[in-house]
Write a protein that binds this DNA or RNA. Structure first.
Lengths: 245, 245
DNA sequence: TCTAAATGTCTATTGATATAGACAACTATA
DNA sequence: TATAGTTGTCTATATCAATAGACATTTAGA
């Protein structure tokens, strides 16, 4: 049996949203792969102990996301089912990590700026606070679906022009290569989770209330000198991380 | 300035809950460390573009969690501010990982059962579906605050009695040692995020709507033979993971 | 072609959520 | 000892969320 987790009342999170989240998760886990359909509204309502109308609100939200499509008389069909796996290793690269799981990858440069390093950025990049860094805001798609939004900082002195290189090559690895850095390694990754804010929601095409997986990562060159610090935000219902040690 | 992210309306997540989450996060990030107090209700209401009463609902929820304490005439004081760091490496162990960040560690065995391996468990442990495994439900505390709830499976043939050993030693590492396994390594960790369900809420002493970081992990002995598969659920606002490669 | 099973639509009612305003009570400080 | 600044309490109102029931509409299959 599928066995959706029970919902909770009076939590500040509407039942229809909790139910939508559970069904989205169940779809992602392949719980309904046999039929390709979500169970009937009446069955879900009974399983979850809520009114059928509440289930309908949840399914309407999922239909809005393009995950299911209701057909009168037949049932509610699953339209899309995805959870990308993102391996985190010493050789973590976004493009090759996701690349074999998606047919088409795109990377978009949303914004670029040169600024003085904040205390946090300076600490990670091993700079003094106030030294110049280049900040890139990037958005990455897999199969035309937004997957992650990232803010990256680079030491400005060493990587002038990395914004332009990234825009052309659509890859950090290739942009580094163009600037004379043939290889680099992922040194540290910190993972947290939080609710999405408004701008992340819009860029990642999420519905409000969605959860983000947040990875703060440092890359260094082969001598251990920091070359990039980044904060990436992933839609938690589309992505999981795998750490292979 | 602190600058809390804006809230969103008509999302199925009540404003007071969104605001509570943002303030909890801001406290965890040290945004109010200078004063040790949350900004006045009227200021927060203005910043967030909501009514003062809505902010009060959020602060009431945080007071319920023991994170803040309102004092009439003075303001709202920060009582607790914590986020434990949990390193994930080849030598990941819960006790030593958290141990140096907390004065007191406790591990509780909630439940123990011998059962037939599900398809998932069998796959991870390299068993045939239906082979016997021991399942442990454990709850771990740091400084009397619940940190994580975990379900672990062990091959029953090899680790008979591990429940009793864990109950006595309050450590997987020591329980393994008692059963003749002096060392093991973390091979794979999968990280996802989701909303907490009812039983996790209760055991982890969370408020409804809270986010969990979920780690599915496999440990093997030094010959690469799987010895443990576990699913651990952490309160996302109390914990972060660090992956050092 | 009938029927069971499924989604779609409508009305009505209740409780939770959010806003609005006014004023009381308390604290720290000028 | 005033006073400004803060939290606490109360009333009122509008909208959202959830339940309840009835019935229409569509699909697939007997």
């Amino acid at each position: 049996m599928a066995g959706l987790k029970q919902v909770q009342r009076q939590t500040g999170v509407a039942l229809w949203r909790q139910i939508a989240d559970r069904i989205r998760e169940a779809i992602g886990n392949g719980a309904y792969d046999e039929t390709g359909m979500v169970p009937p509204e009446t069955v879900l309502a009974l399983q979850l102990g809520v009114n059928r109308h509440t289930v309908r609100s949840a399914l309407a939200a999922l239909a809005q996301e393009g995950i299911v499509r209701a057909v009168q008389g037949r049932g509610t069909l699953i339209e899309r089912k995805e959870r990308l796996n993102f391996p985190i290793t010493r050789r973590t690269r976004f493009t090759s990590g996701i690349g074999d799981q998606a047919r088409e990858m795109r990377a978009l440069l949303l914004d670029e700026a040169t600024e003085e390093a904040s205390a946090e950025v300076a600490r990670w990049l091993g700079l003094k606070q106030g030294e110049e860094v280049i900040r890139l805001e990037t958005l990455r798609h897999a199969d035309r679906r937004p997957v992650s939004k990232a803010t990256s900082w680079f030491p400005a002195a060493r990587f002038a022009g990395i914004g332009e290189a990234y825009r052309k090559r659509e890859s950090i690895t290739k942009a580094f290569a163009d600037l004379g850095l043939p290889d680099y390694v992922r040194t540290t990754t910190e993972v947290t989770a939080a609710h999405a804010n408004t701008s992340d929601l819009a860029d990642l095409e999420l519905t409000p209330g969605a959860i983000l997986l947040i990875a703060k990562a440092m890359n260094t060159d082969l001598d251990g000198v920091p070359v990039q610090y980044s904060i990436s935000r992933f839609a938690a219902d589309r992505v999981q991380f795998t750490i292979e040690n």
